[in-house]
Design a binder for these strands. Structure first.
Length: 111
DNA sequence: GGTCTGACTAGGT
DNA sequence: AACCTAGCCAGAC
């Protein structure tokens, strides 16, 4: 398993997050078969190769955006708000409401 | 190869 | 709530 295929798997799962919903780094790692490798998901998204990957739908386990302002946090928030995602006053997204809950194993849909 | 860093997280104090 | 630690591993020296 090289780094290339690993990142491809992560990207494939991220691509399956529906419009208007979100997923956490740890959730993506688990769904892709890499339990406990949330950091690697963040690392992979940092180097996201194309614009057909909805990287903005991935947030941390506290429901917050992990990017600071310089890295594009404001951009990410805008993109999510344009999909109808609402932020609390403390800039938190309710996972209860918006978190993606796949009915089928995303690995079943690998592209 | 060794060391450090980091779009993270779960569990403990 | 705040803080700490271990777990994870690709890239950049």
């Amino acid at each position: 398993m090289n780094k290339q295929s690993k990142w491809e798997r992560i990207y494939s799962v991220v691509k399956q997050i529906p419009y208007g919903q979100v997923a956490t780094y740890g959730q993506i790692a688990t769904l892709a078969g890499y339990y406990r490798q949330a950091r690697q998901v963040g690392y992979a998204l940092h180097a996201v190769p194309s614009d057909d990957i909805p990287w903005h739908r991935v947030i941390n386990a506290q429901g917050k955006i992990s990017l600071n302002h310089e890295m594009g946090g404001a951009v990410q928030r805008k993109m999510q708000e344009s999909e109808g995602v609402v932020f609390s006053q403390a800039a938190i997204i309710s996972l209860q409401i918006y978190q993606w809950r796949p009915k089928i194993d995303p690995l079943h849909n690998l592209e």
